[in-house]
Simulated scan of single mutants.
Amino acid sequence: MSATPSDRVAVVTGASSGIGAATARALHAAGYRVALLARRVDRIDALAAELGDGAVAIQADVTDRDALLSAAQRVQDELGGADVLVNNAGIMLLGPFTPRQHEDYRRMIEVNLLGAITATEVFLDQLEDGGGDVINISSVAGRTARATNGVYAATKWGMNGWSESLRQALLPDIRVTLIEPGVVDTELPTHITHEATRQAVQKGYDVATVKPEEIADIIAFVLSRPRHLAINEILLRPADQA
């Protein structure tokens, strides 16, 4: 017998804002118990309080494997183990390719790509126990690159390639879905350290975005499909994004 949402547990990384917070809300509303993982514990504590029963806030940085191991143990002990992992944690530190940006490059690789790989590896045993789902949040930047997004695009191209390999490695027990959004109304642009790039990117965000809740609805839909159906990849943009 397949599990109903009320029997399932979803782990969402980067749950403190944007797509992560919206996904946690959507899955909790659909009957999932949710583990909210993020660095900013005040935000996930507030979200857990908002959601109520079945929501657990766990402070964890996806670049810290020990923190993820501790989080996985709490998910096992308090919620019975993960059935869904949403690899959402990410940063978008765009800018020109110069030595002055080297710290931004390292951070993006560690969070966007290695963070998702490590979280999946850490939760893999729980996901395999009864059949699970991995949702990887990538970007349209995983299909195209621009002069100021090279390393960010590299992390997303890497996410896309790794997701396809993971899909083949884990089928049929675990479904892997890659979500590639275009411009989403989140705080990502505010983190850009290169001021001229930040201003230029923000102008694009002021013109065309989709809401995090719209991405969350898509994730909830993917997870609601019967186990024999795997939706492997979804590319989406605002209708007026070039």
Rank of each mutant, 00 (worst) to 15 (best):
P5V: 05
R8E: 08
V11L: 10
A15M: 10
S17H: 11
A21D: 12
A21R: 13
A22L: 10
A24V: 03
R25V: 07
H28E: 06
H28T: 08
G31N: 03
Y32F: 15
A35C: 08
L36D: 09
L37N: 09
A38S: 15
D42K: 06
R43H: 13
A46W: 07
A48Q: 03
E50P: 09
G54L: 06
V56F: 03
A57Y: 10
I58D: 01
V62P: 00
T63E: 08
D64I: 04
L69Y: 00
L69P: 00
S70D: 08
A71M: 06
Q73N: 07
D77F: 02
G80N: 01
G81Q: 04
D83P: 05
L85M: 00
V86K: 03
N87D: 05
I91G: 02
M92C: 04
L93W: 05
L94H: 06
G95P: 11
T98Y: 00
Q101V: 00
Y105T: 00
R107T: 09
R107Y: 00
N112C: 03
N112D: 09
L113R: 05
A119C: 06
E121K: 03
Q126F: 03
D129A: 14
D133N: 12
V134P: 00
N136R: 09
N136L: 09
S138A: 15
A141N: 15
T144M: 14
T144Y: 14
T144N: 10
R146C: 01
A147K: 10
G150F: 08
V151K: 07
Y152P: 14
A154R: 06
W157Y: 15
M159A: 12
M159H: 09
G161T: 06
S165T: 14
L166H: 11
P172M: 09
I174G: 04
R175E: 06
L178N: 14
L178F: 07
G182R: 09
V184H: 11
V184W: 08
E187Q: 13
E187N: 11
I192H: 10
I192R: 10
I192M: 12
T193A: 10
T197K: 02
A200M: 07
A200H: 04
Q202W: 12
G204P: 03
Y205D: 08
Y205N: 01
D206L: 11
V207I: 13
T209I: 05
V210P: 04
V210T: 14
I215F: 07
A216S: 07
I218P: 00
I219N: 06
I219R: 09
L223V: 12
N232R: 15
I234G: 13
L235P: 10
L236G: 11
R237S: 12
P238W: 15
D240F: 15
Q241T: 05
Q241H: 12
